[in-house]
Design a protein around this nucleic acid. Structure first.
Length: 440
DNA sequence: TATCCACAGGAAATCAGGGTGT
DNA sequence: ACACCCTGATTTCCTGTGGATA
């Protein structure tokens, strides 16, 4: 949450009293983890056909055969990862000897060819044997092949690539997928199988044809979004584990399910809402969870996302946002173009020692990223003889932006929010030559 | 109707910072 | 010390473009 580091807030928070009250207050949770996305319950409602398909494809591992590579598609929160994990647990229970290895790779975190190979290696060894950088890729691949034959002897190693679509957006993505799907050709005593999990249905179109044929050995498994009723079933099941009995008021589950169903049936979102509602109720010393807690949870989650995102951006992106903020604050009556943002950003970087001025090209990318995250909108518009540019609007409350930006060390230290862009010369179509002037 | 602005955005190159083995 | 590797951020170079204006 937001803290005021300037020391000019009007009241002081009594943390000791808060903790004492918190401990004295009601305890609603029995097992909070049950609402985490990583929790795998004993049953997965409304995923029977998917479980059946995956179980069918992977079953041959029980008899020592090589399962084919396959893909799982579906939007976020449709239970792809959970279903794969669920099946893997069940499969392990039925293995008498040589249980298969399951290596999960989240491609948003482990996103380069080198790191994927290193991650697989390190997971099998159980410690950080391969450094984060430094070795040639082919050396690691050789080491990995040796390790697989030695450690996964006479068994199968499933490589689960979560968010596999991230990979191919990057260079080298196709190559590593090709390598991973053909590991078996270089292995003697062990077999591997790749399971790709993707949020994007169109992902296959961007794949190299060599990779497509390797990954397409089975019909892809499509996970449809949950509807509100299905989400409610999931929530009921989890709530039973997560909370003590009788503390959820009528309508709470339905509300969570309804809100999440609106967001393409995202179960993760539904669980998050319920957990947050529980936390809010607990913090307010309530003995039950009411609908109002869910409504507050919804607001909190939205805001938390935005704040967290802004604080985690690289400094240059934060400065770009600062430029947009200042422009929208002080030049309300004029449109903001990417050129303006570039000018103001350059001025800002001049004020901060050790921060480089960037090129138009780079700023253009930052603008796109900010637009993608929903903080701003950017629409390309042609203005005839005045060129083609993007018209940028701040899309969230400017007070919130200001509050968050003011917490960022460099912006605070160099008082960047106290600067004001002024117009040197006004054109009838757009504002040109915005120049910075210090405020008193 | 041709022109031309102010960029958009793709591709490849470069740089710095992390590392390696010899 | 040296040659070399990998990555992520950024620059350089480039071609493309919608539509008001001359």
């Amino acid at each position: 949450m937001l803290t005021n580091q300037n020391g000019n807030n009007t009241y002081s928070f009594n943390i000791d009293k808060f903790y004492r009250n918190y401990l004295k207050g009601p305890n609603l949770f029995r097992k909070r983890e049950a609402l985490e996305p990583s929790f795998i319950p004993d049953e997965l409602p409304h995923r029977n056909s998917e479980i059946e398909k995956i179980a069918g494809i992977t079953a041959c591992a029980l008899k020592g055969d090589v399962p084919p590579n396959f893909l799982c598609y579906g939007m976020t929160g449709t239970g792809k990862t959970a279903t794969v994990r669920y099946v893997s647990q069940k499969l392990a229970q039925h293995c008498t000897n040589n249980p298969p290895w399951w290596i999960y790779i989240n491609c948003t975190v482990v996103s380069t060819p080198y790191r994927i190979l290193a991650h697989i290696y390190n997971t099998i060894v159980g410690r950080e044997k391969i450094p984060a950088t430094g070795l040639p890729k082919d050396v690691i691949l050789k080491k990995l092949l040796g390790l697989l034959d030695q450690k996964v002897k006479n068994s199968v190693c499933f490589l689960v690539l979560d968010e596999i679509d991230i990979l191919i957006e990057k260079k080298g993505g196709n190559e590593i997928l090709y390598t991973l799907t053909r590991l078996n050709e270089s292995l003697d005593l062990c077999r591997t199988s790749v399971i790709g999990i993707s949020n994007k249905l169109k992902f296959m179109e961007y794949l190299d044809s060599r990779v497509t044929s390797n990954l397409d050995e089975e019909e892809p498994i499509v996970f449809h979004p949950y509807n509100a009723n299905e989400l409610a079933d999931i929530l009921k099941l989890r709530a039973k584990i997560a909370f003590h009995e009788g503390i959820i008021e009528e309508g709470v589950i339905k509300l969570c399910a309804g809100l999440a169903a609106r967001e393409h049936g995202d179960a993760r979102k539904a669980l998050q809402l319920l957990r947050k509602a529980g936390e809010i109720a607990e913090r307010n010393q309530n003995k039950k969870i009411f609908e109002k807690h869910v409504e507050n949870a919804q607001k909190d989650i939205d805001k938390d996302h935005i704040v967290e995102y802004m604080l985690s951006m690289p400094l240059q992106a934060q400065l770009t946002l600062t430029a947009i903020f200042l422009l929208s604050k002080y030049t309300r009556e004029h449109i903001i173009t990417s050129g303006d943002i570039y000018d103001v950003h350059s001025e800002l970087t001049n004020k901060v020692p050790g921060v480089k001025q960037l090129t138009h090209r780079r700023i253009s990318d930052y603008i796109n990223e900010l637009a993608l995250s929903g903080l701003i909108t950017a629409n390309t518009r042609s203005m005839g003889h005045y060129g083609r540019t993007k018209i940028i609007n701040l899309d969230i409350e400017s007070e919130l932006v200001e509050r968050v930006l003011s917490q960022i060390k460099k912006i605070q230290d160099y008082k960047l929010l106290n600067y004001k862009p002024i117009l040197l010369q006004t054109d009838k179509v757009k504002v040109k030559n915005i120049v910075f002037k210090k405020l008193i």
